[in-house]
């Protein structure tokens, strides 16, 4: 690379999301056409307008391609073990309820190895925002089948096609008690930003699923073209249906994609429920837990 290419034109406007990123760690590891970076951009924009004190925002990731998000965000960030971002986040939040805790991880991490933690954190309504990037595949390890891989899709461990039913994640989250559930795709950058902002403002277990292309491992093996082709697929096949019954939002191989905000309700958080219950039980003897 010639030095000229590295010269920075001082008159150029700065990318406003840069202040949210650890620029010294760029370039990132994601492939060309991958949708994860797009969602990080949306997350940064959501933070920008959220009014949150960034010193009090912590991001927790598990392992995998999306698991690397924590490492690029200029916030307190924790890159934990595979599948365990949610219980780590539970400990962090309950130890210091002042913190805004965001779990940012992938479909395999959060719903296969981490599935048990996902359902219980939603059931308890622990106050956290879970951003799940669903690329239908285990990317980091080379494209193995995931609990989200659509029926008939090919993966490295389903070389003849997948015959397992995939999770319908919004339905899973809602039935376990999530107070906010939305699904969008990496194509819908404004909706994603808005959904993340709403989820961050929500008290309780909020969940945003974002479909994102994995051109290297999912699209290539399934002969679906590159990242741009997947964006075209999202654009042409997404149907916005806010408030629709989440039972109906299952995904199929290259089929229609129902997107929108499906759930937005109130329910006492784990901490509020505990403080209220013990307050009644112990009366004046109880000091509400604040960390």
């Amino acid at each position: 690379m010639s030095d000229e290419l590295l010269d920075v034109d001082e008159s150029m406007p700065t990318n406003t999301v840069e202040e949210f990123l650890r620029m010294e760690r760029m370039p990132h590891i994601w492939c060309p056409g991958c949708g994860i970076g797009t969602t990080v951009n949306c997350f940064a924009h959501a933070l920008e307008t959220s009014g949150l004190d960034l010193r009090k925002v912590s991001v927790v990731s598990g392992i995998g391609c999306t698991g690397r998000v924590a490492g690029y965000l200029k916030l307190d960030s924790f890159h934990t073990t595979h599948g365990r971002a949610i219980p780590f986040a539970t400990g962090l939040k309950l130890a210091n309820p002042e913190l805004k805790v965001v779990v940012y991880s992938g479909d395999g991490d959060l719903t296969a190895i981490g599935g048990n933690h996902f359902i219980h954190a939603a059931r308890r309504n622990v106050d956290m925002t879970v951003i799940l990037i669903n690329n239908f595949i285990y990317g980091m390890t080379g494209g193995q089948v995931a609990p989200t891989t659509p029926l008939t899709a090919t993966a490295s461990t389903t070389p003849h096609g997948n015959f397992e039913e995939a999770f319908n994640l919004p339905y899973l989250a809602e039935s376990c008690g999530a107070v906010y559930v939305a699904r969008w795709t990496a194509y819908h950058v404004r909706h994603v930003t808005k959904a993340i902002k709403e989820a961050l403002a929500k008290k309780g277990f909020s969940f945003v699923e974002i479909l994102a292309p994995c051109p290297t491992l999912y699209s290539r093996r399934n002969k679906l073209g590159d990242g741009l082709d997947q964006m075209v697929y999202y654009k042409e096949n997404s149907e916005v249906k806010n408030d629709i019954d989440t039972k109906t939002v299952s995904l199929s191989f290259q089929g229609k994609i129902t997107v929108g905000k499906f759930v937005d309700k109130e329910r006492p958080t784990y901490l509020d429920a505990m403080n209220e219950y013990y307050g009644k039980k112990f009366g004046d003897k109880y000091t509400p837990y604040k960390g």
Partner: peptide, 28 residues
């Protein structure tokens, strides 16, 4: 409850053993 502590019965031992680490980074 009466001494300002937080006890949580987690869904399994894996969760318990990492929830405590989140709590330590939270200051406990």
């Amino acid at each position: 409850p009466l001494i300002g502590g937080m006890f949580i019965q987690m869904e399994d031992e894996i969760a318990s053993s990492i929830a405590i680490q989140g709590a330590v980074w939270g200051g406990k």
